[in-house]
């Protein structure tokens, strides 16, 4: 067992982990941040996407010990300071970018990573960026619309 410390959503977090403890397990079980979902546990579905040192990673395929000293951002830290939804979350609500909501934390975190690097993506770029995020409800159209809207772009064509 080893001690790990990291900054999670701006707050310092410390815990004891085994070598094999996954970052997703540490977030969910130790820190009780259960917004990060584990869907497939085989790094296919992207429900567990969080940011580590500013980039999107699949937290089910990274060891907690590897994140020692890192800055981690999860869905719990995405809302605005006053608790209202941030622009991406609000766009998901406005454009019905979710149905059951299981994939949504990973979708929002991937969208945030995309828009940080590419503030005005094309629809094709959005779809390509979401290759590692699987949604079984929406058929993706409304997720793509939401991300286009969150980037301040016209969404009229996105669902055609």
């Amino acid at each position: 067992m080893t001690q790990v410390s990291m900054t999670v959503n701006g707050k310092s977090a410390t815990g004891t982990v085994e070598g094999r403890t996954l970052l997703s397990s540490f977030l969910r079980d130790t820190l009780e941040l259960t917004g990060t979902h584990v869907g497939c546990d085989t790094s296919q579905c992207g429900a567990c996407v969080v940011h580590v040192n500013g980039v999107a990673v699949k937290s089910c395929t990274m060891l907690a010990a590897e994140a020692d000293g890192a800055e981690v951002a999860t869905i719990e830290g995405q809302a605005n300071a006053d608790g209202s939804l941030n622009v991406i979350q609000q766009a998901f609500q406005d454009h019905h970018g979710l149905q059951c909501g299981f994939c949504t934390p990973g979708m929002v975190m991937s969208a945030a990573a995309l828009l940080k690097d590419n503030p005005k993506p094309t629809e094709a770029e959005v779809r390509e960026y979401l290759e590692g995020n699987i949604c079984r409800c929406t058929g993706y159209h409304n997720i793509v619309k939401a991300i286009m809207a969150a980037s301040g772009q016209d969404v009229a064509i996105a669902a055609e």
Binding site: V55, A56, V57, K58, S110, A113
Partner: peptide, 9 residues
């Protein structure tokens, strides 16, 4: 290769 999150690791 893979997807964006995989490419980051």
């Amino acid at each position: 290769i893979g997807d964006p999150a995989v490419r980051n690791r």
